[in-house]
Amino acid sequence: MYTAAAFAVLVAMLLALFRAFAGPTLYDRILAVNVFGTKTVLLIAVVGFMMGRPDFLDIVMVYALMNFISVIGILRFFEYTAKNVEVREE
């Protein structure tokens, strides 16, 4: 049953990657990366249980933190530098 859940999460990660590649705006890509990060959190947790090593949860917690902070950091970065970059939809 863990395998089914892990597989579902992996498929969802793949779809999120498609959106990250397709764009079309910068913010679509950041959103896709954020979703991808949340899925990674779930995937690590499920795989940890699948392999009988719930210690993976420590990594899960660190990853959840990193995911949040990286999204905020990236947004902060582009808020100041994206003035000259075309961010509207083509």
Binding site: Y2, A4, A5, A8, L15, V35, K39, L42
Partner: peptide
């Protein structure tokens, strides 16, 4: 819960696309 959660994951990603 695990299987339905997986289904919701895929649903969210499909919506994203």
């Amino acid at each position: 819960l695990l299987v339905f959660g997986g289904f919701l994951c895929i649903s969210g990603a499909v919506g994203l696309l």
